[in-house]
């Protein structure tokens, strides 16, 4: 069943609708509800494939469903349609306007209707795809304030990393923060890269979503085994590597690989002079979980993030 969560008129002969698909069990409804959300940023498309796969898998075994599944594939339909990260016409990052305001502007009104609709879910999963600049291994990001409730659920989602952020770095105007502070457990997934679909990652997360539904007692069907993720709890466990100079970044290390201290990640080159402006090396041993995708860098542009570890990560099932 397709339902409209929020609808507003646009000036010239068009209605903007935020829609969701609701899948209800045929029998034995436990009253549990999971919400799968994506497309808050119009240039992040990895979640599109996941939404499709989750619906397909559940509907093919509908008799095994014992709870409600709500899938919201496009929180920012105008952005997705116009290859725009924010909300076109407003130059606004949609993930900076939650919890919204029912008496506010059009965008604040939409945000408040979205929160109203999602609130009360037993679990909400907000799927992001980094941005066009960085590629991420499948990971979940959790605010330390909410880790007690979320970490136990995150482990079932079949990701490679759970990154617990300090509260200071978490933005209060995100969907996840707003929902978690309203006691609706919300996990933020980051994986892949903007403007692309990484099918392998999508398949991996799909199994995780089915597995977490099992854990919540709302799915009796098939779900693949899940990986045991790396967990980062302390601030100093993650090394951030920023560009020391402007230039063109050329990657030499592989995404997800183990780096020894001093190992090269890539080079910043100067195509005008034919020189290497900087060699980028890891200052610690660890797993390269974020890597620069977009080659043009300014001084300060993020090049990589490394989870410091003694040994490589082998996804154990």
């Amino acid at each position: 069943m397709i339902k409209t969560v929020a609808a507003v008129e646009l000036p010239v002969d068009e209605i903007l609708q935020i829609r969701k698909k609701r899948i209800e069990p045929k029998q034995g409804n436990t009253g549990k509800r999971i919400s799968i959300v994506t497309g808050i940023h119009g240039d992040e498309l990895e979640g599109q494939y996941v939404c499709h796969q989750v619906i397909r898998r559940i509907e093919s075994e509908i008799n095994n469903l014992t709870g409600i599944v709500d899938v919201y594939p496009a929180m920012n339909p105008l952005g997705i349609d116009s290859v725009t990260r924010g909300i076109p016409g407003f130059d606004l990052d949609m993930n900076r306007i939650f919890p919204g305001n029912s008496d506010g502007t059009m965008t604040e009104y939409i945000a408040s209707e979205i929160i109203r609709d999602l609130e009360g879910s037993d679990l909400c999963i907000d799927i992001h795809a980094s941005n066009i600049y960085l590629t991420e291994i499948p990971q979940i990001r959790i605010n330390e304030l909410h880790q007690d409730k979320l970490l136990s659920l995150a482990k079932y989602l079949n990701v490679d990393l759970v990154w617990i952020h300090s509260n200071a770095t978490v933005l209060e105007s995100t969907l996840a923060y707003s929902l978690n502070s309203r006691n609706t457990p919300t996990l933020v997934v980051e994986m892949g890269v903007g403007m692309r679909i990484t099918k392998e990652y999508g398949d991996q997360l799909t199994e995780g979503i089915l597995q977490v539904m099992k854990e919540l007692g709302m799915w009796k069907g098939a779900a693949g085994p899940v990986r045991r993720p790396m967990i980062s709890r302390a601030v100093d466990e993650v090394e951030f590597v920023n560009a020391p100079k402007a230039g063109i970044f050329v990657q030499t290390a592989s995404h997800g690989q183990y780096l020894h201290r001093g190992e090269e990640i890539g080079q910043i080159i100067d195509p005008l002079e034919g020189k290497v402006r900087a060699r980028i090396r890891s200052e610690a041993g660890g797993v390269l979980f974020t890597i620069r995708e977009y080659p043009v860098v300014d001084e300060g542009s993020l090049i990589a993030r490394i989870l410091k570890r003694e040994e490589p990560y082998v996804p154990a099932l």
Binding site: V8, L10, P11, G89, G104, T105, Y109
Partner: peptide, 8 residues
């Protein structure tokens, strides 16, 4: 010149 709905 154009306005959206629910707009201040």
């Amino acid at each position: 010149p154009l306005t959206y709905s629910s707009t201040a």
